[in-house]
Computed example of a mutant assay.
Amino acid sequence: MNEVMFYMNEEGFGTIYTTRMFNKIHKMIEEGKLSTENALLLLKHIGYCKILFGWWSSDFKNSLLCGRFEKMIVDEDKKNEEKNEKLLADLCKCDLMLGFGFSSELLSICVPCLLKVASNKEENKEAQKEVEMALLALCRAVDYFKIDKELFLDEIKEIIEHHQKHRNLTRLAYQSIWEYFLNEFNSKRRFEEVIVNELHFAREATRELEQLIQRVDWKRKEEGKGGKIEKEEILLMGWLQALNRYFCDCRLRNEEIIGLIGSIVKVFRIAKGKNVSVSDKSIRLFQSAARNRDAAIDGLLKGGAGDLIFEEIVQSTLNDKTAYTCSSFFIEISYRLKKNEDDEMEVAKRKELKRNLFEKMEEEGYEDTITKFHEILPYYRRRYGYLLSVNVTDCFVNV
């Protein structure tokens, strides 16, 4: 069934896995024609593929089966010595992977249950698969703001640190726990300290990106061959999604960020023309980082973000989205380099950055290209609803 789903699209999934089908499974369980154990085995695989490929469907939530499972979760959790931990974990996996819009009561049961499953350090394939499913369910469930992640910080740290030492998780499981951790952490500085300085997210993300770009069959993509989607592409998209949260909310000032920026530049260059989703997400990360007032501009530039934007901005085939991203990057950098600082060292550093940028623009002939954005900024304001300054060249021209 998993092999069939790998060739299925979202429309095909929605046609087969309907509320009517889930209700039929519910009826079969009621009549004793299908055991709960076998039903859970089937539904875990359906949910796994649904979440892996990012398919949207509300059919399970509207089914009798969903109501049955959620009641079973609450009832099973109330048990003490007779509690069936495996049954509870499987119910939680199915409900979170197939459903949406979870109650605080349900999440307060499922989150600790699935983190306990994810803490399993066995390295056999069966255990790794269950850990992978548990983390995939966790990172994709919505409404997690109802549960304070700080309550589970130690468990999350332990899972990540153990993997960093022993490499016991699958690639998907490792990417998933980072995505779960970074999602909606609301800039809590204690979390950020753990993410940046204790767990070294930038270093880990760099390593994963470097390995993934070597594993994707880019030649097949370049030739436009369809068929089975590669898991590595899904993983790459997952890391880029996690990085967007990181770039928006964290203080990007340690040395590890330079290597990460360099890896994202590599991802963009190799994916360009082969996977539009990957290349678009990659370059938009630099826009997010430029908007982050706590991100070090020199780190972005040393990593090669500025060079990449320069290269793209002069392309005759530049599409609207990329043009908007590039212009936004320059506007944000311009604004930040023009800021007044009391610290003389910061002032000197800012002037040096401005001078270096100007010299590069003048040398490569980029200044005229940037100036042309005066003509199209009103269009981007209307199209994307973002208030772009018309003084995009002020910083760069008037050093």
Score class of each variant (00 low, 15 high):
Met8Glu: 15
Met8Asn: 05
Asn9Pro: 00
Glu10Val: 05
Phe13Ala: 15
Gly14Asp: 12
Thr15Gln: 14
Thr19Phe: 01
Arg20Met: 08
Met21Cys: 04
Met28Val: 06
Ser35Gly: 15
Asn38Leu: 10
Leu40Arg: 04
Cys49Pro: 02
Ile51Leu: 13
Ile51Thr: 14
Ser57Trp: 02
Ser57Met: 06
Cys66Trp: 11
Phe69His: 15
Val74His: 00
Glu81Arg: 02
Asn84Leu: 03
Leu87Val: 04
Lys93Gln: 11
Lys93Cys: 09
Lys93Met: 11
Cys94Pro: 01
Cys94Gln: 04
Leu96Arg: 03
Gly99Asn: 06
Phe100Leu: 03
Phe100Ala: 05
Phe100Arg: 12
Gly101Glu: 03
Phe102Leu: 00
Ser104Val: 12
Ser104Lys: 15
Glu105His: 01
Leu106Val: 02
Leu107Thr: 01
Cys113Arg: 01
Lys116Glu: 11
Asn120Arg: 00
Glu122Gly: 02
Asn124Ala: 03
Asn124Lys: 01
Val131Pro: 00
Ala141Gln: 06
Lys146Gln: 14
Ile147Asp: 04
Lys149Thr: 01
Glu155Arg: 12
Glu161Met: 10
Gln164Glu: 14
Lys165Asp: 15
Arg167Glu: 10
Trp178Leu: 02
Glu179Lys: 08
Glu179Gly: 05
Phe181His: 07
Glu184Tyr: 05
Phe185Tyr: 13
Glu192Arg: 06
Val196Lys: 11
Asn197Asp: 09
Arg207Gln: 15
Glu210Met: 02
Asp217Ser: 10
Arg220Phe: 03
Gly224His: 02
Lys228Arg: 12
Glu233Gln: 12
Asn244Cys: 15
Arg245Tyr: 13
Tyr246Gly: 14
Cys248Ala: 13
Cys250Thr: 13
Arg253Gln: 12
Asn254Phe: 03
Asn254Arg: 09
Glu256Thr: 01
Gly259Phe: 04
Gly259Arg: 10
Leu260Lys: 01
Ile261Gly: 06
Ile264Glu: 01
Lys274Asp: 01
Ser277Ile: 13
Ile283Arg: 10
Arg284Asp: 01
Arg284Ala: 06
Gln287Phe: 14
Ala290Tyr: 01
Ala295Ser: 13
Leu300Phe: 07
Leu301Thr: 09
Ala305His: 04
Leu308Cys: 10
Ile309His: 08
Ile313Glu: 06
Gln315Asn: 13
Thr317Asn: 14
Leu318Tyr: 08
Asn319His: 09
Asp320Thr: 11
Asp320Tyr: 11
Asp320Glu: 15
Lys321Met: 10
Ala323Met: 12
Tyr324Pro: 01
Ser328Lys: 09
Phe329Lys: 14
Phe329Ile: 13
Glu332Ile: 04
Tyr335Thr: 12
Tyr335Asp: 14
Lys338Trp: 02
Asn340Trp: 02
Asp342Thr: 08
Asp342Val: 05
Lys349Asp: 13
Lys351Ile: 01
Leu353Thr: 15
Leu357Val: 15
Glu359Gly: 04
Lys360Thr: 12
Glu363Asp: 11
Glu364Asn: 13
Lys372Cys: 11
Ile376Phe: 04
Pro378Val: 15
Tyr380Ala: 00
Arg381Gln: 15
Gly385Phe: 03
Leu387Ile: 05
Ser389Ala: 14
Val390Leu: 14
Thr393Trp: 05
Cys395Lys: 03
Cys395Val: 03
Phe396Met: 06
Phe396Ser: 05
